[in-house]
Nucleic acid binder design. Structure first.
Lengths: 146, 146
DNA sequence: CTCCGGTTGAGAACCGTTCTCAACGCAACT
DNA sequence: AGTTGCGTTGAGAACGGTTCTCAACCGGAG
C-alpha cells in the first residue's frame, strides 16, 4: 500500500516536462489527490465550479493527468467511471462499491507470473493488465449499505 | 481456457427465467458468441441492421445479457468499450489491443488468494474483481500493427 | 379469434464529452 | 512598464453514444 503522491512531487513532474502547473490544474489535482475515495469528473467539476474552474478544463486536465499516469480510472458498483490518484509503481485498487473508498495494494508478483505464463501459451506479447478488486468497506457494511 | 456457451444453452437460461428468446435476441447473441473477438455495440447494431434489428434493441439486449452474466465488458487499447461472450465459470480475458481477438484464461487461484489476504488486511468484504490482460497477438505483431 | 403483456423500431430526448474560439495569463524579451 | 507569443482557459455549441417514448407488433393463453 502506497501513499498518494504529494502535490509537490506532481509539480516537479510537470516542470520536468515543461508543462505549466496552473492554478486550475492544482485545484483539480488536489481534488482527486486530496480524497481517499475515487471521484467522477462531474463531481470534481461541480466542486470546483465556484473556484472558477470550467468543466472543459476539468476534462482536459483529467485526460492530461491520466496520460501522465498520475490518475487512474476505476469504476464503482454501478459502473460509474471515477478517477483516483495515483497508481504509483504498480499498485492496484481495492474499491468500496458503495462509497468508493479506495485502498491500493501491490499484487504485481502474482500477475507478472501469470503474464509470463500467458505469453508463453498464447504467443501474445503482453503490454499491460488491469486488476481491480471490489468489496464493501467495513463502514458501509455496518451502516447496512452493503 | 473455456469454450463459448452454445446458443442452445442460452435458450435454456432464458426459458428457465421465463424470458422470451426472440429472433432479435438470438441474432444479437449469435453476433457476440459467434466471434472470437470482442465487438462494440455499434458494430453489432451496424451488422444487424439489415436483419431488421433496431439499435435500441441491441442496447437493451446487451444490457439484458450482461445482467444475466452472459456477456462481459472489456476494452481495447483505445479504451473503446466492447462486449464478449461468455465469462463462464471464472475466466478472465486476454485481449489483443489492436484487433481485439480474445483468449480466455483461468487465473482464479492466484486472485482468490490475493482476495483473502486483502479481506484480512483491510476489513473489506470482497464481492468481486476484474482482471484483464492486454497484449498484441502474434498476427498483429507480424503485420506490424503492434 | 381476441386479449394481453412483453418486445420491438423509429425517432426524440438526454447527457457526458469534445470542440471552437475569443479572452486571458504568464514568461521572455525589449 | 510595454510588447510579443504561445499555451491555457471558460462559455457555449456541437457531437455521439445511450436511454426514453410511444405506437405497432408478436406470440401465448383463454
Amino acid at each position: 500500500m502506497t501513499d498518494p503522491q504529494s502535490t509537490h512531487d506532481i509539480e516537479a513532474v510537470f516542470r520536468e516536462k515543461g508543462i505549466p502547473f496552473t492554478r486550475q490544474r492544482r485545484l483539480i489535482w488536489d481534488h482527486f489527490a486530496g480524497a481517499d475515495r475515487a471521484a467522477t469528473i462531474t463531481e470534481a467539476a461541480d466542486a470546483l465550479r465556484s473556484d472558477g474552474v470550467g468543466q472543459a478544463t476539468v476534462y482536459r486536465t483529467v485526460t492530461l493527468l491520466s496520460d501522465l499516469g498520475l490518475l487512474a480510472r476505476v469504476q464503482d458498483r454501478r459502473g460509474e467511471i471515477c478517477y483516483t490518484a495515483p497508481p504509483i509503481g504498480h499498485s492496484h485498487p481495492l474499491i468500496c462499491g458503495v462509497c468508493r473508498k479506495l485502498v491500493r495494494f501491490e499484487g504485481d508478483g502474482d500477475v507478472k507470473e501469470l503474464e509470463a505464463r500467458l505469453a508463453a501459451e498464447t504467443g501474445f506479447s503482453i503490454y499491460g493488465h488491469h486488476l481491480e478488486v471490489y468489496g464493501i468497506c467495513a463502514k458501509c457494511r455496518e451502516a447496512g449499505r452493503g
